[in-house]
Write a protein that binds this DNA or RNA. Structure first.
Lengths: 180, 180
DNA sequence: TTAAGCATGTAACGAGTTACATGATTGA
DNA sequence: TCAATCATGTAACTCGTTACATGCTTAA
């Protein structure tokens, strides 16, 4: 049975304490989604696959009439997670950004429209930075209390990357304003 | 007919002077692929779609026995490109990086393996920066001679982002070395 | 009581990749 | 002559998304 990155992501989230599929998705939405997006529709089939493979064990965790399942990593599951963490591969990063793609072709635009585009992208970067500071960093910091440090570190990296982009766009904006 | 980002990418590349499908792919490989990946198998059907929609015109450009087609944007095509460049949308950027995903779960690893992972990722960042400086920036700089400035700007952004990441990983490496 | 959030799943669709298939030209 | 590169396309498959479908619980 072939494990994909999403499999390891889910395995890791369960290891971190996310019990239900819903909880896994919620946790991913404020953390891993920025470097590995995953939809809820992926989670449930993948949980089933992981259980079939004996990497997760599932138990009933309904309260009242609401159905819920609680997942736990098996020893085999913990082993698989550690093995993946130490393995090479997946070197190729993939990035998709229609905004930057537009900017790449911006020579075809009149000066004023170039400036407008740069401003929009800068605004977007600023919002991303804000969101990271207000939502992502705090939720990651909270995990430090239970001895989980890397999410906070990576949230920090995310903030710095946004800052880097925003500064670059600020410089571009400045240049374009001068030319106008 | 619906235009996707890849359609606009191809339209833009043709506008920039890439004549054949092959040339479009080659140009994309040293520029746009870093923020909008595209395979050769996408190019040919998309060129056909754009021609059908009247945004590109195609003419025979064989030399000798080797078949080749030369594409040119129609007025409608140029118009569509400008319209897209000024339009909003595509705000959501998407990033996939299995390396960072691993690092996110690195709390599950013994110190030494954490350090090894950090070093690998740093090495990767350094290679990416090197490649950007040696290959991407020079090919983008060359375009300035024909009045196309943005590719060089964006190559610069790419270099700065790598630097930012590399510095962050260097700090992490330092912290981990101290703890060991 | 009603909206937001919790909770689990499936089905249809679309986008993109890899592999396949073929052949010409050019420079070492 | 032989490898690298130029050149165009198709077919099968995989992955992921959106939309669908359903129902409970909790707090305002």
């Amino acid at each position: 049975m072939k494990l994909r990155p999403a499999s390891h992501l889910i395995l890791g989230m369960v290891q971190m304490g996310a019990r239900s599929g819903y909880a896994i998705k919620k946790a991913a939405d404020v953390s891993t989604r920025f470097f590995w997006p995953m939809s809820l529709a992926q989670v449930y089939p993948e949980l089933a696959r992981l259980e079939d493979a004996g990497l997760l064990s599932r138990s009933d965790d309904s309260h009242g009439n609401r159905a819920r399942f609680a997942y736990q990593p098996t020893e085999k599951g913990e082993e698989a997670l550690r093995k993946w963490l130490s393995s090479p591969g997946g070197e190729e990063t993939q990035f998709r950004d229609e905004g930057i793609l537009r900017l790449f072709f911006a020579d075809n635009l009149p000066r004023q429209d170039q400036l407008a585009l740069a401003r929009r992208l800068r605004e977007r970067a600023r919002e991303g930075l804000d969101y990271t500071r207000k939502e992502i960093i705090p939720s990651a910091e909270a995990l430090k209390d239970v001895g989980i440090d890397y999410p906070a570190r990576i949230a920090q990296l995310r903030a710095e990357t946004y800052q880097c982009t925003e500064q670059w766009l600020a410089r571009l904006e400045g240049e374009l304003e001068q030319q106008a």
